[in-house]
Design a protein around this nucleic acid. Structure first.
Length: 255
DNA sequence: ATCTATTCCTGGCTGC
DNA sequence: TGCAGCCAGGAATAGA
């Protein structure tokens, strides 16, 4: 997103080419003739605010697992939309598994109002209060976008590991200090991954498939059977909220 | 409120 | 070497 904004801001969309209807919502072609007024993020959604005279609209993008927004790349077999700007800049939306969505809308859909707060904009106290008011499992809560927005499977597992909290721990049963520690772990993990380029969309240009440095930071995610970096006990994998969940059975406690 | 299962889809992996 | 079968996963949805 940070890579997208400087180049797209103020540019007018001259032409739109659409390939795979499945990932497209609304009449994406109507984005033509609009100018990019802002590029921002809400949870896992990237919002491209558009303006044409007094009219406003949005391109709302959710990358899902394998979606990519690519500037000036070559369109391939997984390119579903192509935006050509007035200065020759080209924006591609690629998505291999088509779990992502690219939507054109005049007003943001309801689901945006249901998005919970960004972890960065929550105080530790507020997070702990919200967290301890819920009776669901810690991992499920972190994945619930109406509780906090922006966390996916990787960062949920990594945050719980750093906080030493078992993914199946009941949120309401954790002591306040532990809930606060979880908020610190979340912010730490997110900041660290951003620092290592994990969230910079323009870095995804490499066609060699999502191999960012952030993978080197993972201490539990997809490390099943490998020794815990802290205590050496093998990392375990279980299902929580129908999601593959990785944790250290010694370092992460339910209490 | 909160749980599970299901659906979408493709590439990567396993095993024969 | 080829190919079938299985699996992951974000979020919406249905049903408990």
């Amino acid at each position: 997103m940070q890579g997208l904004a400087p180049r797209m801001l103020g540019r007018r969309i001259e032409r739109v080419e659409l390939r795979q209807p499945r990932v497209l919502v609304g009449e994406v072609g109507r984005a033509a003739d609009f100018t990019v007024a802002a590029v921002r993020r809400q949870g896992k959604h990237i919002l491209i605010d558009l303006r044409r005279g007094r009219r406003t609209a949005h391109l709302a993008v959710h990358l899902g697992m394998t979606g990519q927004l690519v500037l000036d790349g070559e369109p391939g077999r997984h390119t579903h939309a192509l935006f050509l700007f007035d200065d020759g800049l080209r924006l591609l939306y690629n998505d291999i598994r088509q779990f992502g969505r690219l939507e054109f809308c005049e007003r943001l859909p309801q689901r945006f109002q249901r998005l919970g707060p960004d972890p960065f904009h929550l105080s530790e106290e507020e997070f702990a209060r919200r967290f301890r008011s819920r009776r669901s499992m810690a991992k499920a809560l972190l994945l619930d976008q109406s509780f906090v927005s922006g966390l996916g499977n990787i960062y949920a597992d990594e945050s719980l590991f750093r906080a030493g909290i078992h993914p199946r721990a009941i949120a309401a049963r954790l002591r306040r200090a532990r809930a606060g520690g979880l908020h610190r772990a979340i912010v730490e993990v997110l900041q660290e991954s951003i620092l290592h380029g994990g969230s910079s969309i323009s870095d995804f240009v490499s066609s060699d498939g999502h191999r960012g440095r952030f993978q080197l930071l993972h201490r539990v995610y997809r490390r099943t059977g490998q020794p815990c970096a802290v205590c050496g006990v093998p990392i375990r994998r279980i299902l929580v909220a129908s999601r593959g969940t990785h944790f250290c059975p010694r370092c992460q406690k339910a209490g």
